[in-house]
């Protein structure tokens, strides 16, 4: 199957690959996966507690090119956004941006789920801190 240029670009030069400290209270970690294709995706955000803006994002994905490109794009998009703005990102936006074919739409769903899981993890941590 042919990948679009944008997928190939993210696949060969993935943005923001790496790890943030999971124990840092400002860091939210989202881990999601799709068993049928063996994909696992970890997306992390670091939130500025004063402004509520996502200052940094990292990902690490084991999976196909589309899964890697989707999560790479997701980290680019969430940076500089508030949590609510990041929650508004829809998988269809990723599909359109990367011209993903129908069989790869689930990769974009995974990326959206990863953003949501990371934000949820961050919020849960904040809640626990407040006691």
């Amino acid at each position: 199957m042919a990948y679009s240029d944008k997928v190939l670009d993210h696949y060969s030069n993935p943005r923001n690959v790496g790890t943030l400290d999971r124990t840092d209270p400002r860091v939210g970690t989202g881990m999601v996966g799709a068993p049928e294709c063996g994909d696992v995706m970890r997306l992390q955000i670091k939130v500025n507690e004063e402004t509520g803006i996502i200052e940094d994002a990292r990902f690490k994905t084991f999976g196909c090119g589309s899964a890697i490109a989707s999560s790479s794009l997701a980290t680019e998009w969430v940076k500089g956004k508030t949590l609510d703005e990041a929650l508004a990102i829809r998988n269809i936006d990723i599909v359109n941006e990367l011209s993903l074919p129908p069989v790869k739409i689930h990769c974009s769903v995974l990326a959206e789920d990863a953003i949501k899981a990371a934000i949820e993890d961050y919020k849960k941590k904040r809640q626990q801190q407040k006691g």
């Binding site: 881990m31 999601v32 996966g33 068993p35 970890r42 690490k60 084991f62 689930h106 789920d113």
Partner: peptide
């Protein structure tokens, strides 16, 4: 069906580590 169920977190953590 397989695609509908979200895998448990421990499994994802384990698989992630094995992949690493």
């Amino acid at each position: 069906t397989p695609s509908k169920a979200a895998p448990p977190q421990e499994l994802l953590d384990e698989v992630f580590e094995l992949n690493m």
